[in-house]
Design a protein around this nucleic acid. Structure first.
Length: 424
RNA sequence: GGAGAGGUGGGUGAGAGGCUUAAACCAACAGUUUGCUAAACUGUCGUACGGGUUAAACUGUACCGGGGGUUCGAAUCCCCCCCUCUCCGCCA
């Protein structure tokens, strides 16, 4: 969530920035927050002054009693009663205001970076560049949902039987391909200086709030009612929350973590005609990179993380493009997001396989993730993350783009992980 | 799931209604000393939200796992909850 200080001191920048998201309620919410903030400060001042008086009086009573002046003490006790009532009333009012303010702050998304273009949706994203050559497929080339049947490597019907739609079963070389991709991605991340983590894949409510999935996306996560736990939609949630309520040492920055986890998304109501096969699933695998940086470094790191992702796509020899998302297409928490999309040749479509974001202090503020800067002042850090990479659509593109009449070729970099060079 | 013991600042750990403004030690930081390192000594050393200020200085409040309560006054007493540890049960 945004800092109150930012709302107060940079009101215009905030409102103008939020306008790029096509977020119409912004001016109203910001004004409401500022009004509540003013009220809160007034009440706090009043209450604090009363408390100061009452603290002093209590001390006086103690001394009077010690000196055997019980009558004077009792007199003072009676006088305090009124103040006590006023203090209580102020406290109630204060916590009511704080709650209201909090609710409003939760509703205000992050302010897009100055370079983020305004826009409503995907059509307004800025194509930064395209890389690679779209392969010419032989006639009779199949989309991946046909290929997986032909070679019997992924079975959706079996998944339906044991779980439901969107929970595929990977079989034989299909399962090995998954494992190979995960190992390849982890190895590359390690080479780039990321420390591998294996976090839990269920998290508590506080973690959901920490990274901003709650209260915004409550319905998107699977929830384990009996234990009050959420299945993670991305490794970002457990990994970033490791640093909740943490004060990091400057010499330990930047933090670079990578983790492979399954990811779970309810995707309520989003099943449509063009999400066939592996394009959208309830459970999928993803390797996620997370960095925590000093504020002044975060945008360089954002580019560095993109380069890492681009490197992976390049090594897999997949044609891809890099998009700078417009305000309207960006996630709630993000200040700037790049999407990487690969071209899936049989579907003739771009598929999003990675989203790399800088959240600036938006998450850190909720997480209370800070470090002590050179002046000895506590300062919020910046958090960033990116998929590196999400598996299903990579698999879809690999299968489609590398198909030949005699089978599907495995990219050379993957072969040492798969142990085979083609699926046939 | 059952029984017990605990949760105090960056760490260890005292405090058991007003002598606390949370002791002491360690760590950290600054300084003194020193050819360098080490050691010793001196000093500094919490966070959040306010007030105040150009900025500071200064100043108020809250915070001893969380939430309530008793009291003029709570780290301390009472109630509820959460978590950790030990033992038992179950178990990959």
């Amino acid at each position: 969530m945004l800092l109150l200080q930012t709302l107060r001191e940079e009101t215009d920048r905030v409102i103008e920035g939020l306008a790029k998201r096509n977020f119409k309620e912004a001016p109203m919410l910001v004004n409401e927050a500022l009004t509540l903030d003013k009220q809160r400060r007034d009440i706090q001042k009043k209450g604090d002054d009363l408390k100061a008086k009452s603290n002093a009086d209590s001390k006086k009573i103690g001394e009077l009693i010690k000196n055997g002046k019980a009558e004077e003490a009792n007199l003072l006790k009676n006088q305090i009663a009124n103040d006590k009532q006023a203090i209580k009333a102020d406290e109630e009012k204060l916590s009511e205001l704080e709650k209201k303010l909090q609710d409003i702050l939760y509703k205000i998304p992050n302010v897009p970076h100055a370079k983020v273009p305004a826009g409503k949706g995907a059509e307004d994203n800025k194509n930064v560049f395209e890389h690679g050559v779209v392969p010419q497929l032989y006639s009779g080339a199949l989309p991946h949902w046909e290929l997986i049947k032909k070679y019997d490597i992924i079975d959706f019907d079996l998944g339906v039987k044991i779980s439901g739609a969107g929970f595929p079963v990977y079989k034989g070389k299909g399962a090995k391909l998954q494992r190979a991709l995960i190992n390849f991605f982890l190895a590359e991340a390690e080479r780039a200086g990321y420390t591998e983590l294996q976090p839990p894949i269920v998290v508590n409510e506080a973690s959901g709030y920490g990274t901003g999935q709650l209260p915004d996306k409550e319905g998107q996560m699977y929830f384990v009612n009996a234990d009050g736990l959420y299945l993670i939609p991305t490794a970002e949630v457990p990994i970033t929350n490791l640093y909740r309520d943490v004060i990091l040492q400057e010499e330990n920055l930047p933090v670079k973590n990578v983790g492979y986890t399954p990811c779970f998304r309810r995707e309520a109501g989003s099943w449509g005609a063009h999400v066939r096969g592996l394009n959208r699933l309830h459970q999928f695998d993803k390797v996620e990179i997370v960095q925590i940086t000093k504020p002044e470094d975060s945008y360089n790191v954002l580019e560095e993380m993109c380069k890492h992702v681009q490197g992976l796509l390049g090594k897999l020899q997949l044609p891809y493009r890099k998009l700078l998302l417009c305000g309207g297409d960006m996630g709630f928490n993000s200040a700037m997001t790049y999407d990487m999309e690969v071209f899936s040749a049989a579907q003739q479509r771009w598929l999003e396989v990675s989203s790399v974001s800088n959240f600036e202090t938006y998450q850190a503020n909720r997480l209370k993730l800070r470090y002590k800067n050179k002046e000895g002042k506590m300062q919020l850090l910046h958090t960033l993350n990116g998929s590196a990479l999400a598996l299903p659509r990579i698999v879809a593109a690999l299968l489609e783009n590398n198909q030949t009449e005699n089978g599907i070729k495995i990219p050379e970099v993957l072969q040492k992980y798969t142990g085979f060079d083609s699926i046939n």
